[in-house]
């Protein structure tokens, strides 16, 4: 019988700690599938974030490094510079990449480090209990913006991918989403592209993944997917940015 679905080799056969309906499990799998497709598991080194995906290395079957909150791209920069023949990527959330680590993000991108970045944007802080993220939408309620994000108090949702597009060191930027199977497939091909770019030595590639967080959005898993489709992608339009 022809096997149509299985666990990719770079993914461990173990249940994750993520909430039902969370996007991290899908994103982990997409990364693992891409690594399998490209046949690079033996030379891949990941840098995990601080945030919900802090123990991503428990789910992946390749070399991984931890990084302090926000510093993944500094750690990854050095790993790649020391071992240019290896494939190095970071996997970071919106707090890690676009708040505490904005400086490291911008400078690694501006140096044109030959790295791939998977940026999970769920517009909220999951691990610490649903607080405001730099990417939280205007009016979106969080535990530290109970009345909804107010531009006068909290400023605007940060569009880090659009900001990075200005930098000559950046070769590829695409925003994708996990809200339906078609988009998931597009997300996979974008991640694949980001890794392929690194293999070809083209420079800094980042894929921003709009990812559901039903728990802290106060929605069911199904409603969370609809919210990305109907609300979130209006603020964060999908497609190729650079």
């Amino acid at each position: 019988m022809h096997k149509v679905f299985s666990v990719p080799d770079p993914l461990r056969k173990t249940p994750t700690h993520y909430c039902p309906g969370c996007g991290h499990g899908i994103a982990h799998r997409l990364v693992a599938e891409v690594i399998q497709d490209l046949g690079i598991r033996g030379k891949t080194i990941a840098v995990a974030p601080v945030g919900c995906a802090v123990v991503a290395y428990d789910y992946w079957k390749f070399d991984c490094s931890e990084a302090p909150h926000g510093r993944a791209l500094a750690v990854a920069t050095a790993i790649k510079r020391m071992q240019p023949e290896k494939i190095v990527f970071t996997y970071q959330g919106d707090g890690d990449l676009a708040a505490i680590g904005t400086n490291e993000t911008i400078h690694a991108a501006n140096r044109g480090e030959n790295l791939s970045v998977v940026f999970i944007n769920n517009a909220i802080y999951g691990m610490t209990g649903g607080q405001l993220a730099p990417t939280t939408l205007l009016g979106q309620k969080t535990s530290t913006s109970a009345a909804g994000r107010d531009k006068k108090l909290h400023g605007y949702p940060l569009k880090i991918s659009e900001m990075l597009a200005l930098l000559p060191g950046v070769c590829y930027l695409e925003r994708v989403s996990l809200h339906n199977p078609g988009e998931v497939l597009k997300a996979k091909s974008a991640i694949r592209r980001a890794f392929q770019n690194q293999l070809e030595g083209l420079g800094f590639s980042l894929v921003e993944v709009l990812s559901p967080c039903p728990t802290y959005w106060g929605l069911s898993p199904r409603e969370a997917l609809d919210w990305i489709r109907d609300v979130m992608q209006k603020e964060f339009p999908l497609g190729r940015i650079k």
Partner: peptide
Amino acid sequence: LAAINMVYGA
């Protein structure tokens, strides 16, 4: 901050 974390990576 970046420097010490680059040292971590290296």
